[in-house]
Design a binder for these strands. Sequence first.
DNA 1: TCTGGGGTCCTAGGACCC
DNA 2: TCTGGGGTCCTAGGACCC
Length: 437
Amino acid sequence: MPGLTVLADANSFFASCETVFDPTLAGKPVVVLSNNDGCVVARSAKAKALGIANGTPWFKIRERARQDGVIARSSNYELYASLSARMMSVMRTYMPRQEIYSIDECFLHAPWNAARTAQASIRMREAVLTGVGIPVSVGIAPSKTLAKVANHWAKDHPQEHGVTVWPRADDVLITEALATIPVERVWGVGRRLTRTLQSMGILTALQLRDTDPVAIRRRFSVVLESTVLELRGLPCIPDQPAAADGERTTQILCSRMFSTPIEGFEGIGQALGLYAQRACHRLRRQHGLCSQVHAFCSTSPFDTDHHYLSLHGVSMLPDPSDDPITIGRAAYDAMRPHFDRHGRYIRAGVMLCGLVDADVFHTLDGLEAVRDDHHLGAVLDEVARRFGPARAGVGYAGIRGSGRHSGDTGAPWSMRRDMLSARCTTRWDEMAVVHAS
DNA sequence: TCTGGGGTCCTAGGACCC
DNA sequence: TCTGGGGTCCTAGGACCC
């Protein structure tokens, strides 16, 4: 139906979240680090201006960054998820349909003309800024891909005041803008495609838009063909099914890097047990059962003194299950026969596949799921609901270290987050304190 | 010393069927 | 013994996203 696609995307979301409850960070170079304080995953505008790239390992730039006055924070996903939910709920009061695309961005459908859509977007942006404290940028266009490009344009051009409106794909101004945008900044064009496209002489978003879509489909795929059509203003990418509570995924993955390497199967077994229980918790939350449990672990690809090892095993469950003990044991059994005791492992993970709907499955005659007869999963879920995540579990999942974050088991390999901010919006004892004088 | 953690979709190719 | 064309389903792997 007629109307425009609106993409609202927070500016430097994680860094902005850190600033909401610590206003002393405003206007300063702030970076947020990945788990184990490994890489930079978000930068404030000032940090970007210092030339810090996303994905940079923190240990490589730490000294220099300190000299430059950069403030680093460990990632505080509990805080970010809470502020994301507030931001999304404010925005959906301004437009009739919202598709939450990631923690910091959503598509909105505006069934109006350009002027009215722009007005609503400006008000929406103001409401999020004053009500939640997060600055967002808005791109408005006939298709999602073009709205994404418009959103980048809004972020890169302060004179747009955070809202870029591109109502007609064939407008000469838009054509001129696309000519200045490198092809790798187009949504759906990653590193590999960029290289191939460049070798064909396609360097800008405009050149991609003006390439024959049929040729693109033959040479690449229907996905990239859609990208070309979307750049021409033809919407091809449908909304994902509503992101309601209990939404189903097709696989569940829980994996982590360790703060120090693990040698030997005992430690790997502990980690697999912990990750299996977290995956299992997510499985029950979406009312699913799984029929395959994958376990994997690997050594560091950066350790040139040792052979790189990447081990992977699968257990097929005789009957689909959501029981933490069954799934934990399956992860352990999947890895055991493949394990190489000579490795120094820095990562392990558990993936649940072959997911089926628990409510549908148990109605099938003659097929009995192994459904957590002892209700251990349900008890663990209730403990988590009342007291927060990771308060109780089997084996290492039931052990708490002295650190505040929920990933800390106290094991030597447990995740490190040395610069964690307070979870102001989800923990009574970490609420922000304001002094008046 | 120290390099994240989730997901989705598409395609090619093999197995199997008529 | 030899042999066609076309379809479906499944899986592994690749590419992408934030």
